[in-house]
Nucleic acid binder design. Structure first.
Lengths: 248, 248
DNA sequence: CGCCCTTTTGATTCCGGTCAATTCCTGTGG
DNA sequence: CCACAGGAATTGACCGGAATCAAAAGGGCG
C-alpha cells in the first residue's frame, strides 16, 4: 500500500517531537515537490537490503522495524530497533551496509528521495536542521547502546533494554510495555543467546522487578532494580514489591 | 595554547576528506565570522566532562582522543576513539553525557560555537551538509562498532579493532600501525578485560597474524586472519605466513 | 484440532573475568 | 649517563556466567 505525505506533515512531526523550530524563511509551498512515499510492510518483510543502493532516507510512521547485519557465519546483530518517528538509512555512501525489516505486520515507512531532500535542505534551513537533529538522535541512541553492549551482565542488559523500550515507546506511566519483537530479536540486539534472554526475564519476574502479562507484554514493577540490576534493590520500598505472587 | 582557524580551512578540510561540494551559494566572506578556537591538550586532559553544557561542537585537528562514560560501579566504556578530522559533541541536548579526554600529548581540538555554526548553516547550505555528513559518519562508525561489541569472541574483537584502526588512521600499506592508546583503553573500547586484550594480542602474534614491533606498534601480517579471526586462516597463502620467528 | 514455531527450562561446557605475580617500559632525578 | 621508581603490559591459575546442547511446554494459525 502506497500513500503520500506532505513535507508539512513531516515538519510537524519533527516539531512535535522536539519543540519549536524557527519561522520559515521560504514559503513551504515548494515543499509540495518533496513528497514521501509511504509503504506498508508485512511482518519480516524487507525495507531494504545490505546491498541496495542508498538513494533514499526513511522514517518509520507506524509499527516497528529492525536494522541488522548478517555475518558470514550466520550470526546476526541487530543494530537498532526503529520506532515511529525514527529516521533511518541516513548515510552519504552509495550503498547500505545493513538490512531493515519490519518487525510487526503493517509497519508503515515513509521514503524520501535523498537527492531531492538534500537539495530542498539547501534552500530551507528547517529541513537541514530536521535531518541534522534526526542524525544526532541516532548517534545518541547508538552510543547509549554501546554502554549496554559493552560491559554488562545479562541482567543489566535485559534490564536496560526494558527501560529503553519503555522510554522510547512512551509506555504508560504504569510501566506497561509491549515488546513487538521476538526473544531472538532481543537476543541479537543485546548480544546474548535467546535462551539467556528468556532465562533472565524469568529471573527478573521471580525477583519481582517485572511482571509478565503475556509473552510480549511486560509490566515494569521496580524500575530502579532494572537500572542498576545485577545488584540488590536500590529503592528502599522496593523490598515490599519483592514477594510477588506467581504469574498466572 | 589557543589559535584561530577560518571556516574556509574547515570547509577545505571537509572537502578534502569527502570530495567536491557544490559551488558556494554565498560569498564565503561571512565565514570569517565563524572562527574555531583550537586548543592543545596534554595526555589525559579533559576536553569536556559528562556534566558540561553542550554549547559547542568539536573536531580533532591532530592527535587522538577518547569519548567515554564512567558508570557508577567504576566501569568505564569507551564509546569512540577520535582521530584527526572526526567531529564530536554533535548533539542537540543541553548537556553532554560523555567525557572526552586527550589520549596523546598535544592533541589539538577545534571548538565551534554551536549556535553560531547552526545559524551559519541556515544561510550557507554547504555548512549544513558538512555537519550532516559528519553526523552520518559518526552513525556509521557507531553502528559498525555494534557489530564488534555485540557478539564476537575476544579474538574477533581485537582483530576487528586492529583492522578498524589501520583503516581509520590510513596506516601504511605495509600494515604498520601505531596504537596511541593503552591496553586498558582498548579493553574499555572492546568490552574486554585488559588482560584479555594483552593475551589476545600475544595469541595473534604467535599465530602469525600480526607482529608486535613495540608495545604500541603493530604490523598487520595477515589481515584476512584478523577479519574473520577465531577461525582457520582464510587466504590460502596465509599458511606460509604462519611460522613466524619470535619477536625480538 | 493439530502442527509448527516460539518460549521456557535444564545440564554441561568453555571463554573470558578476576586475582596474583612477574617483567617491561618510560620518565625522573641523582 | 645510569639507576631507580611507578605504572603498563604480559603471563599464569582459577572460577563463574553465559553459550551451547537438549528437551519439554506453550501459543498461534491453518
Amino acid at each position: 500500500m502506497e500513500g503520500k505525505a506532505s513535507l508539512a506533515q513531516v515538519m510537524a512531526a519533527g516539531a512535535r517531537a522536539r519543540g519549536r523550530l524557527e519561522p520559515p524563511t521560504r514559503d513551504p509551498l515548494e515543499a509540495s515537490e518533496c513528497l514521501a512515499t509511504t509503504t506498508r510492510y508485512r511482518r519480516g518483510e524487507e525495507v531494504y537490503g545490505p546491498e541496495d543502493p542508498a538513494g533514499h532516507w526513511y522514517r518509520v510512521v507506524s509499527g516497528v522495524a529492525r536494522k541488522s547485519a548478517l555475518k558470514a557465519d550466520g550470526r546476526r546483530q541487530i543494530v537498532d530497533f526503529l520506532l515511529p518517528g525514527d529516521f533511518f538509512g541516513l548515510i552519504t555512501r552509495h550503498q547500505h551496509r545493513f538490512a531493515v525489516e519490519a518487525v510487526t505486520d503493517g509497519t508503515e515507512v515513509a521514503r524520501y528521495q535523498r537527492g531531492k531532500l538534500e537539495r530542498l535542505a539547501d534552500f530551507d534551513p528547517r529541513i537541514g536542521r530536521l535531518i541534522r537533529e534526526a542524525a544526532f538522535e541516532a548517534i545518541s541512541r547508538a552510543q547509549a547502546r554501546m554502554l549496554i553492549l559493552g560491559r554488562m551482565s545479562a541482567q543489566e542488559k535485559v534490564g536496560a533494554f526494558l527501560v529503553e523500550m519503555a522510554e522510547r515507546s512512551r509506555a504508560g506511566a504504569a510501566g506497561e510495555l509491549v515488546l513487538a519483537m521476538s526473544r531472538y530479536d532481543i537476543a541479537d540486539y543485546l548480544g546474548l543467546a535467546a535462551e539467556t534472554v528468556s532465562r533472565t526475564l524469568s529471573d527478573l519476574r521471580r525477583s519481582g522487578a517485572i511482571r509478565l502479562e503475556g509473552t510480549h507484554r511486560v509490566r515494569i514493577v521496580d524500575r530502579a532494580a532494572l537500572e542498576d540490576a545485577d545488584g540488590a534493590p536500590s529503592a528502599p520500598d522496593a523490598i515490599f514489591a519483592r514477594p510477588i505472587r506467581p504469574w498466572r
